[in-house]
Design a protein around this nucleic acid. Sequence first.
DNA 1: ATGCGTTTTTAGCGCACACTAACGACAAGT
DNA 2: ACTTGTCGTTAGTGTGCGCTAAAAACGCAT
Lengths: 231, 231
Amino acid sequence: MTGTGLRKGAQPFTPAVEDYAKTLYRLEQQRDAPVATGAIATRLEVSAPSASNMVRNLAQLGLVTVARGRGARLTPAGRELARAVIRRHRIIECFLMDALHLPWDSVHGEADLLEHAVSTRVAEAMWDALGRPVRDPHGDPITPSGDDDPDTDILEPLDACEPDAIGVLVRVSDAQPEALRYMAERGIAPGLPIRVISREPFGVGQRVLIGDTEHIIGPELGRLIFIERTA
Amino acid sequence: MTGTGLRKGAQPFTPAVEDYAKTLYRLEQQRDAPVATGAIATRLEVSAPSASNMVRNLAQLGLVTVARGRGARLTPAGRELARAVIRRHRIIECFLMDALHLPWDSVHGEADLLEHAVSTRVAEAMWDALGRPVRDPHGDPITPSGDDDPDTDILEPLDACEPDAIGVLVRVSDAQPEALRYMAERGIAPGLPIRVISREPFGVGQRVLIGDTEHIIGPELGRLIFIERTA
DNA sequence: ATGCGTTTTTAGCGCACACTAACGACAAGT
DNA sequence: ACTTGTCGTTAGTGTGCGCTAAAAACGCAT
């Protein structure tokens, strides 16, 4: 891979380390258990040995403890780093959309590049300039400073909601840009009221009212959309 | 130095290459001649061998031609790269000051970090959001897209101006943050009218009217301040 | 021309991070 | 109990980019 260049005044951790911490955090919070190195490798699109090595590296930095046998867990320090990176990422996403008016689906990728170069100072200045928003454009929470995502457990994936469920579309996973583009085209975005009309058979998906438009949401998409139930 | 981490979607050139191109450009334009590798090393604060190696690297990338014997010159491609980086840098500086209200003296350092992570798309979006300004906060020109700095030759360093010279303070070199802090404290900034009152003997410097305040400008500072003469 | 100081390059190394190929450890199936 | 497939790890490489120590080239003064 390409070398690092002259990054003297940069963050205390390398971009790679930050990325691993972030990924660890994500996976750890998905199911609360030690994270397999293979999962990390898949998620970061690196080879298994690369992930294996880097996990050892993180352990040496005190960011991770390797449970004997299988899997790694973040230490408090690691968790703090991960949360700091995620916070920067989300602030940057907000910023790119609200201040620079970049299209929804490109914001996540740009933020991935920027999150390692933007200092905390700059990120906080962005946050202030935006009026300290509470969620990013995909509905992910921007937590005060080092808290856990408060509501990931409250939210339900649309996919899992039975007909007549009512709520607010709060979050849309930013993992797949094409999905975002698809949704943007149809006006599906966080903040809209949502109601499940019915579930179509044969795996077609759900008929859903979002805002005042009816949509057919396939199961793939349904897993990326999260709602806060009101009924 | 630290490794690069996962920078997949990034710029076509590494941060280091961009930094060398930028420096080459700067030095080449200072005196129009091939640039000695030692000068590059000094400017970038790396060892002479490092600079030497990287210059060879740039040559291989087609960004530079190494004049036999001494010194390197940018090719058109190299010049274009350098100008793109410099343009990004200046837009970012503007942005940090005008949109995020960061202090004058910290803006340059942050921009140095960011200029390699901000894509052209984002930089141009920043520029638009700022109303396409023509100069950055230090008075350096933000040229339309790939032109040469138009006026560096028109400007005169304050240091070289004789008493009674009148003009506008256009540019302040951003090379030394402490100097910027000093000037910021005293309200010295680009855009102000300026008049040289007298030159004090024994190397003390010049008495100068900037805006409507009188200042004593020592020779060190006088070399960092550039004015556009009107008389 | 010869020798000296400066400048540049060569040689060899370290570190971060990726990769492939090959090896080991364990669950499950026969 | 033995094979097999799925993990994970070790071993060894490559690339970017920095470094020091030593050699080579240049430029100037004698």
